[in-house]
Design a protein around this nucleic acid. Sequence first.
DNA 1: TTCTGCGCACGAA
DNA 2: TTCGTGCGCAGAA
Length: 411
Amino acid sequence: MSESKYREWILDTIDSLRSRKARPDLERICRMVRRRHGSEPDRTCAELEKLIQEQIVLKVNYKGSISYRNAAKVQRRSRKKEDVSLATAARRSAVEEASHSDLSNGDSALGPADQDEEDLEADTSMAMDTDSNADEEGADESRDSQDGPSPGRTHEAAAPVRAASAPCSPSGTLPGPDPGPGLDCVSLQKAMERPNSLPPSSPRALAHNDWAYDSTVCPAERQHPGMQRDKVATKPAIQSVTSSPCALSNIKKEDGGKVEDSHLSSDQMVPDYAARLDETKNVSDGRPQTLSPPSDDCTFKKIDISSFTAAEDSLLNGDKADDEISVKKEKMSQNLLQWTVADVASYFSAAGFPEQAMAFRTQEIDGKSLLLMQRSDVLTGLSIRLGPALKIYERHVKVLQRTHFLEFEDL
DNA sequence: TTCTGCGCACGAA
DNA sequence: TTCGTGCGCAGAA
């Protein structure tokens, strides 16, 4: 029985419970998985915990009880029109994801809108277990250290109250809705903690973090630790869990028929650059994708993503990138600071994320802002779906940032 | 007995 | 007003 199978089962179960308006709590999840697939609650619990760690499943405290959410389906409500400044917005959303609502008023399923500044430094833990047991948070911390230095995750210390503890209470006789002390999964969680903590600001750290860029041109072929989330079958009904990250872009929100997905063409989304994109794609023919970072004052016109990616890879491996690529990279880094909002939007549009490009535009992300973006900002601050957001961050934002900072480090 | 569907109320946006 | 959520009940299996 593969883990991916379990993921599928669990996500399926959560979706199923949700669809029938039942609280997806541990008890129900375990029971349903056992009934449907004959899996022991212990195992289900363990797998569920893993999913939480991987931020595939969100653990939330809703109305005083623990619920689990399919992270891919968590809707970020009413963030469409945010006129707050980018920094504020991004930060706030990071807080949203990370800090969860406290028991104060229970409801936290969607993440609190504003948690004030108390957790601003907290990195994004999609597992917004609102009762926030320190165990999990610890794991999260170590895992997500790439997001940025999160010195002193305040909520960690601030939340010893009513630790909802790990969701383990296996073996059929599960404690009721009260997530009381069943079997604890602490050991599991600890076991799952990953050592990983180089300061993200350091390009080298990035290179050593959970991210190793594959030189393969097609991201679909890549499987690296940092992208594990992408492998999740967000649509449980689908059997093949070997889905590539690319497959995620096809994720549709099936719940309630809320298909937020883009039916919009590039033209609709980013009219001014879409044409160029199409043009480019046609011309490039066999080549993957060609970016055309705009701006009149740009010192370059087109950069081949694949080349760029390859350059990054070489960089990571300590190889000497070939001159041509280096030149491109250098130019790109320099120009990044000069990118306008439109440039950034067009970049992502050209990179195959026209819909998400709009989000960058809406949030007024220019080159400088792009350099400042953290993972959580991309995942949550833009109100874009998790799948594309992960890809955008891992394959583009991070790459651009790293390249940029590497440049400066070298200088 | 267990599972499922759903009306309804609640709280947040 | 809309939306996400889940309690609690009734009917089905």
